[in-house]
Design a protein around this nucleic acid. Structure first.
Length: 505
DNA sequence: CGTCAAGCTCTTAGGAGCTTGACGGTGCTCTAAT
C-alpha cells in the first residue's frame, strides 16, 4: 500500500501539507528526523501515518496530560482502538494490565516523568518500540534544564529502548534549541526538516505605556474594537482574574480567565468553551495554549512581555492559523522587566538552599531511601518542588542518588560549588534570553526582521501590516459591526447552514 | 515594579498614615511498608 492510500483511507485527506511527505518518507526509510513545522496543524500525522507501515508500536512522549488525552480521543474517533496513554489517569490495575500487553498497542503516549520508572521501561523494552517520538520537543530546552528535568533523561530512555527510529517534532526552535534537542536525545545523525517560523499574516505591534492604569485603558480599547476571538497573556494568575473582572465591568461580556492554579475540570471547560466560540476573550498565563488548535483567533495581546522570544513566537502563533490576518500587541512598561527578572530567578534554587540541602544530607552516614529524603525536604523543610528536582538531577548525575537510594557519604565538598555554578549558568542563559526580548521591544528596525535574525533565518516579508515599525493600519483589524448588522434572518435553512459552517472550525 | 497585608508610630483610645517585606509562572507523579 502506498502512503497516499493510507492518507486517504485512514485519515481522509487527499494531499499532504508542506513537509509531511518528506518527513514520513524519511522515517520509513529508517532515518532519524528532527522536524520544525510551524503551527500545530498536521504535525501528528507525521508519526501517525508511518505507524500503519510498522509492525511495532509507536511511543510518543508528550508534555501534557490534556494533550495526550486529546490525541487518544482523536485516534479513537478515527477508528483506531489500539491506543493508550500511560499516565496518572490510569488506575493501578489498568496500568498493570496495559503494561502487560504493551506490544498490542499501535500508539503509546507517555509523559517524560513516567518514563523514569524502571518497570515502565522494561515493559516498553519487551513491547519492542519501533518509533520513538518526542512531541513538542522544544520542551527539552525550555523546561528540561530547570522545570521538568526528566526531559533531559529522554536520551537515556531512547537508548535503553535500543535506539528505535526517532522523530523529534516542534513548532518553533532557534539553533540553540535544536542543539539542545540533539544533545539531550543523543541524536547524532538526524535528518533535519526545518521550515520557517515566520507567519506573514500576523502583524506585530509594541506599545509603550506609562503605568498599569494606562495599560488597562489601552487593553480595554483594543478588546472593544478588535475582532474576536482573542487571547490576553499575563505574567501572574491574580492579574488574569483581575483583568477579567475589569473587562466585564466595562462591557466585554464573554471573557474568562485561565491559569495553572485552577481545578483541571474548570480549565478543561474554559478551554472547550473557547474552542467552541462561546468565549470572545481569554485572559491567561502561559499555562494556556499548548495543544490549543483554534483556527480563527484574531488577536493576541501581551499584558507583559514573555521571558523569551521563543515563547513570544509560540504565543502569537496561536492566532491566525486559518491564514487570515491577525494582530499581536505587546503592551510594555519599564517596570515589567523587574517582574520578568524575579520570575526567572524563582525558577532556580538559591545558593543557600543548595548549601542547606547538601549539608543536611551530609549529617547522615548511612544510605537512605530517596522517598524519605524527598519527603523531608519537600514537606518538613518546605523546599520548592522544582528546586528539589533540580538538586536531585545533579545528585543523580554525581552518583549520590542511584535508583531509589541516596548515599550521603558520596556528597563531595566540591558538589555545592558545582551545583551553584550550574544555577549561575542557567540564570545567565535566562537573562540573555530576556535581553533579546528587550531588544525586540526597543528596536527601531522591522520587528519581523529582528525575529528572523534571532531564529537565524533568511528573507523578509514584504507584506503590508508587517509591524509597527513598518506601519500597521489598525483599522484592518477592527470589528466589522456594519457587516454583522446587515445580515438579516432569512430562513431556518440558511441559518442552519451558517451554524454548521461555524461548527466546522 | 505593583499590590497587599502586617506592623509600627503618633496621638490620645480607635483610627489614620506610614514603612517594610513578601510575592509573582509553566506540570508530572506518587510501587512504600506498617
Amino acid at each position: 500500500m502506498k502512503i497516499e492510500q493510507v492518507l486517504q483511507t485512514k485519515f481522509g485527506f487527499n494531499h499532504f501539507r508542506e513537509g509531511q511527505r518528506e518527513i514520513i518518507e524519511d522515517l520509513l526509510a529508517g532515518n532519524h528526523v528532527l522536524a520544525v513545522l510551524p503551527t500545530g496543524t498536521g504535525k501528528s500525522l507525521c508519526y501517525q501515518l508511518p505507524a500503519y507501515f510498522m509492525k511495532r508500536p509507536v511511543l510518543i512522549v508528550s508534555p501534557l496530560l490534556s494533550l495526550m488525552e486529546d490525541q487518544v480521543q482523536q485516534l479513537k474517533a478515527n477508528g483506531e482502538k489500539n491506543v493508550i496513554a500511560l499516565n496518572s489517569f490510569l488506575r493501578e490495575e489498568e496500568k498493570k494490565e496495559a503494561l502487560r500487553h504493551l506490544a498490542a498497542y499501535r500508539f503509546i503516549y507517555a509523559s517524560p516523568e513516567i518514563l523514569q520508572n524502571a518497570y515502565v521501561i522494561q515493559a516498553l523494552q519487551s513491547a519492542n518500540v519501533g518509533l520513538f517520538v518526542v512531541d513538542e520537543a522544544h520542551c527539552i530546552s525550555q523546561w528540561g534544564h530547570d522545570f521538568r528535568l526528566d526531559y533531559l533523561h529522554l536520551g537515556d530512555v531512547w537508548q535503553s529502548l535500543g535506539k528505535p527510529i526517532c522523530l523529534a517534532l516542534t513548532g518553533t526552535a532557534t539553533n540553540e534549541v535544536l542543539e539542545d534537542i540533539k544533545h539531550y536525545l543523543q541524536l547524532k545523525d538526524a535528518h533535519e526538516h526545518l521550515y520557517s517560523m515566520n507567519r506573514p499574516n500576523i502583524a506585530m505591534n509594541v506599545e509603550y505605556v506609562e503605568g498599569v492604569k494606562e495599560k488597562k485603558e489601552k487593553l480595554l480599547a483594543y478588546v472593544k474594537h478588535l475582532q474576536n476571538p482573542g487571547i490576553i497573556y499575563c505574567s501572574s494568575r491574580a492579574l488574569t482574574e483581575e483583568l477579567t473582572v475589569y473587562l466585564k465591568e466595562n462591557g466585554i461580556e464573554n471573557v474568562q480567565y485561565y491559569h495553572g492554579g485552577m481545578e483541571s475540570s474548570e480549565r478543561m471547560l474554559i478551554q472547550q468553551q473557547f474552542l467552541e466560540n462561546q468565549l470572545d476573550v481569554i485572559c491567561c498565563t502561559s499555562a494556556f495554549g499548548m495543544g490549543v488548535n483554534k483556527r480563527n483567533v484574531r488577536f493576541v495581546i501581551h499584558f507583559q512581555p514573555p521571558p523569551q522570544l521563543e515563547s513570544y513566537v509560540q504565543e502569537i502563533g496561536r492566532s491566525g492559523r486559518d491564514g487570515e490576518d491577525s494582530i499581536a500587541i505587546l503592551l510594555y512598561h519599564e517596570g515589567d522587566d523587574e517582574l520578568a527578572y524575579s520570575l526567572l530567578e524563582m525558577e532556580l534554587p538559591s545558593s543557600d538552599i543548595v548549601f542547606y540541602c547538601l549539608s543536611t544530607l551530609r549529617t547522615n552516614k548511612q544510605a537512605m531511601s530517596l522517598k524519605k529524603v524527598e519527603d523531608h525536604f519537600l514537606f518538613t523543610i518546605g523546599i520548592q518542588e522544582t528546586h528539589w528536582r533540580f538538586l536531585r538531577y545533579y545528585l543523580q548525575k554525581e552518583g549520590v542518588i542511584v535508583g531509589d537510594t541516596v548515599y550521603p557519604s558520596l556528597v563531595q565538598e566540591s558538589l555545592h560549588e558545582k551545583i551553584v555554578d550550574a544555577v549561575k549558568e542557567r540564570l545567565q542563559n535566562k537573562y540573555r534570553k530576556y535581553t533579546a526580548m528587550k531588544q525586540f521591544i526597543h528596536t527601531h528596525e522591522c520587528r519581523r526582521q529582528l525575529l528572523m535574525r534571532y531564529f537565524e533565518e533568511e528573507g523578509l516579508s514584504e507584506k503590508i501590516n508587517c509591524c509597527d515599525q513598518c506601519g500597521i493600519s489598525l483599522d484592518d483589524y477592527k470589528k466589522r459591526e456594519n457587516l454583522k448588522k446587515k445580515r438579516i434572518f432569512k430562513d431556518w435553512e440558511s441559518e442552519l447552514r451558517i451554524l454548521l459552517r461555524q461548527g466546522e472550525e
